[in-house]
């Protein structure tokens, strides 16, 4: 695995590793904000894979795609945080469990 030259595979491996870590964070954390952070991590991992694909294929599309992802990620963070604020206002807590009240 440790090679003298870095190939696309290395970048992709790094990407999936970060993605899994982020996903794990989303699955296990209690705090809504930290869950959003996990999502940001996952999105960053995706960005990494886009940019490295673009790099190794000598294409601009990868960079542009990651640019779009960033925009969407910013928007998502905005909405997510607004939701977190709403939940906090109502319950004085930001536990993800509080969203279960939406079930009823």
């Amino acid at each position: 695995m440790i090679a003298s030259t870095i190939t696309l595979h290395h970048c992709l491996f790094l990407s999936i590793l970060i993605f899994s870590i982020g996903a794990f964070g989303v699955l296990v954390r209690k705090n809504i904000i930290v869950i959003l952070m996990g999502i940001e991590l996952m999105l960053n991992a995706v960005n990494l894979s886009f940019v490295s694909f673009g790099y190794f294929n000598s294409s601009l599309d990868g960079q542009l795609m990651s640019f779009f992802v960033m925009t969407v990620a910013a928007a998502e963070a905005g909405v997510g945080l607004a939701l977190a604020v709403t939940v906090f206002k109502k319950f004085k807590k930001i536990d993800i469990k509080l969203f279960e009240t939406l079930r009823d």
Partner: peptide
């Protein structure tokens, strides 16, 4: 159960 983390899991 309405738990979003379980769904995501």
């Amino acid at each position: 159960n309405g738990n979003m983390q379980t769904y995501a899991f």
